[in-house]
């Protein structure tokens, strides 16, 4: 039994730990979405975190805790700098500006070959991330976000999401709160990048491009952004789906796409939708609409 478990772990540990990475990423975009911003720079922040940490570990020999801290601080700083001009954009325009920032980051990484290894990336990063680091990170992130939702800041985010103008008139500092959400999201994405870089042995710029950015958003929306459970659940399903479908070989990705479309069509608020659960399992007196 133990043996079976340990072989299972050897084969699947990377997959299981990438559940943690993806959960952190989905939570990082949830944070900005909860403040009404469609910012899609999370893949870039993840990349900044991953590269900062990998370089500090390999070239400067920093200890792992310090590396994690730096891997979160660097993207926060980047978020502060690009947030100042971009956060006044709204809707689709913010999404596009942040996507463009992501591409710029990717290209800068490719072009600073001395430091980042260019297009080939960095290989041989020590695998310092243990399973409990990942678990602890996800649990801490969830705890902080859960406390935050019920705090003054969380309510301010919600007010801004519902109506920016009204929130401003109520005396909420819209700009500062948006910036806070953006920076905290960047920190989470950087954490995910750092832990993931010290897990997968190597990183390369392709991982942090447009497709990753879209994937992160998809995971969050897929799970549902009404609560904290949604992004975590969405990222888990999204991570496991290709493996679960692997018997289908070539048509695996195709089924993956179909599942995505079907969920969007039939579960409009994502998979985790408390309102729908109430409708399904709650008392029957509220007639279905």
């Amino acid at each position: 039994m133990m043996e079976a478990l340990s072989t299972f772990w050897v084969i699947h540990s990377n997959l299981i730990l990438s559940l943690g990475t993806n959960a952190l990423l989905a939570l990082s975009i949830w944070l900005t979405l909860s403040c009404g911003m469609l910012a899609m720079a999370n893949a870039a922040f993840m990349g900044i975190g991953a590269y900062t940490s990998a370089i500090l570990t390999m070239q400067f020999g920093w200890p792992f805790p310090a590396v994690i801290l730096a891997g979160m601080l660097a993207p926060m700083l980047a978020a502060l700098i690009i947030g100042l001009p971009t956060l006044r954009l709204s809707g689709v325009y913010l999404a596009m500006a942040t996507l463009a920032f992501g591409e710029v980051v990717r290209i800068v990484i490719i072009n600073t070959e001395l430091l980042t290894g260019g297009i080939g990336g960095i290989a041989g990063i020590p695998t310092s991330t243990e399973w409990w680091h990942m678990l602890l990170a996800v649990v801490c992130a969830l705890f902080v976000l859960w406390r935050m939702r019920r705090s003054k800041v969380g309510r301010a985010f919600e007010a801004i999401r519902e109506d920016e103008t009204a929130a401003g008139l109520m005396g909420i500092n819209v700009g500062a709160n948006k910036m806070l959400a953006f920076i905290l999201g960047a920190a989470l994405a950087g954490l995910a990048g750092t832990l993931n870089a010290h897990l997968t042995f190597m990183i390369d710029p392709k991982e942090f491009g447009f497709d990753r950015g879209v994937e992160i958003l998809t995971m969050a929306i897929f799970g549902g952004i009404g609560s904290l459970v949604g992004p975590v659940l969405g990222s888990a399903i999204f991570t496991l789906l290709p493996t679960v479908l692997s018997p289908l070989a070539d048509f695996r990705l195709m089924v993956n796409g179909v599942v995505l479309v079907l969920i969007v069509l039939f579960l409009p608020n994502g998979i985790w939708d408390p309102a729908r659960f109430k409708q399904w399992f709650g008392r029957k007196q509220g007639a279905r609409t």
Binding site: L253, G257, L260
Partner: peptide, 14 residues
């Protein structure tokens, strides 16, 4: 937009 991502995945992998 997310639905069209799914469509793109289907077409590309087909």
């Amino acid at each position: 937009m997310i639905a069209t991502i799914g469509v793109a995945i289907v077409l590309n992998s087909a």
